[in-house]
C-alpha cells in the first residue's frame, strides 16, 4: 500500500506546484453554474412553485454544484491508458514493481481530489452568492465518502474504456458515449427527481446514478438511509466492475507484444 500512497503523494505535489493553473481550470465551473441558475430560476418561476419533487431552486443549484464537481474533476483516464497502450509506454510501466491499474488509480485519485476541492470552492462561492448558504455541513463527511466511491466507480469504467485501446484504434467514441450516458442517467444537468417515474427507475438501476445523482442528492438532503443506500449501490458496482476490469486487463495483456527497446 505504501508505494501506492507514495504515487498518490507525488502526483499531489506535482499538481500543487502549479496552483494558478489549478485555479484557472476551476473557473470553468462558473459559466455552468451561472447558466444553471438562470435555467432553474426561470423554470421554477414559470411553474409557480417553491419546491418541485422535494427540491427548491437553492437545493437544485447545490445538487448541480456537487454533480458538476464530480464530473469536471474526474481525470480523462481512458485517454491516459489508451495513450500508454498506443505509444507503447505501457511496456515501461509494466516493468515497474507495481500494479499497472493500481498505479493509475493512485495517480488519478490524487489529481481528482485536488481538482475536486478547487472546483467545489470556486463553484460553491458563486452558488452561495446566487442562492444562499450550502446544506448542513454535518452531512458533508458521508457525502465525501460517497464522492470517493463515485470517483472509484468512474475509475473502473474509464479504465475499461482505456483498455479497449488494445482492440480498437480509437476510444474517443466510447468516451463520448460514456460521458453522455453519465449526463443522462446520472442526472448531471437535471436531477433524476424531475424525470418521469419509469426513467427514474431505469436510471437508478444503472451505475451512473451512483456516480453523480447519489452523492449530489445526499448532499442536499443528508440522511443515514440515503447514505447507506448510495454507498451500498456504489460498493456493489465497484465489486462487479473490478472483477470485469481485472479480467479485461489479463485478457488485454495477452494481446500485448513488446519488441525489444
Amino acid at each position: 500500500m505504501q508505494k501506492y500512497f507514495a504515487i498518490f503523494k507525488v502526483t499531489l505535489l506535482n499538481n500543487l506546484a502549479y496552483p494558478a493553473e489549478l485555479l484557472g481550470r476551476s473557473l470553468m465551473i462558473l459559466p455552468f453554474m451561472w447558466i444553471f441558475h438562470q435555467l432553474w430560476r426561470v423554470t421554477f418561476a414559470a411553474a409557480g412553485q417553491e419546491s418541485i419533487n422535494g427540491l427548491t431552486v437553492a437545493s437544485t443549484l447545490w445538487y448541480l454544484l456537487l454533480a458538476e464537481t464530480i464530473e469536471l474533476s474526474r481525470p480523462r483516464l481512458g485517454y491516459a491508458i489508451s495513450d500508454a497502450v498506443k505509444d507503447g509506454s505501457i511496456a515501461y510501466l509494466l516493468t515497474k514493481p507495481y500494479d499497472f491499474l493500481l498505479y493509475h488509480y493512485s495517480s488519478a485519485l490524487s489529481e481528482t481530489l485536488l481538482k475536486g476541492i478547487f472546483n467545489f470552492l470556486v463553484g460553491g462561492a458563486l452558488v452561495w452568492f446566487l442562492v444562499g448558504a450550502p446544506p448542513n455541513p454535518l452531512g458533508w463527511l458521508p457525502v465525501a465518502i460517497t464522492v470517493l466511491g463515485a470517483w472509484t466507480l468512474n475509475f473502473c469504467i474509464s479504465a475499461l474504456i482505456g483498455l479497449s485501446a488494445f482492440v480498437v484504434e480509437d476510444i474517443s467514441a466510447f468516451q463520448w458515449v460514456y460521458q453522455k450516458l453519465a449526463f443522462i442517467f446520472g442526472g448531471l444537468l437535471i436531477p433524476l427527481d424531475f424525470y418521469p417515474a419509469w426513467l427514474q427507475n431505469i436510471a437508478r438501476a444503472l451505475p451512473f446514478s451512483s456516480i453523480l445523482y447519489g452523492p449530489a442528492r445526499l448532499f442536499v438532503e443528508p440522511s443515514l438511509s440515503a447514505f447507506l443506500s448510495t454507498l451500498g449501490m456504489q460498493l456493489g458496482w465497484i465489486f462487479a466492475l473490478s472483477l470485469v476490469l481485472a479480467f479485461a486487463y489479463r485478457r488485454s495483456l495477452a494481446y500485448l507484444t513488446i519488441n525489444g527497446g
Partner: peptide
C-alpha cells in the same frame, strides 16, 4: 467510429 460516435453522442446529449 468517430463520425457515428459523435452523432450518437449528440443524440444522447
Amino acid at each position: 467510429t468517430q463520425m457515428l460516435g459523435m452523432i450518437l453522442n449528440n443524440s444522447i446529449y
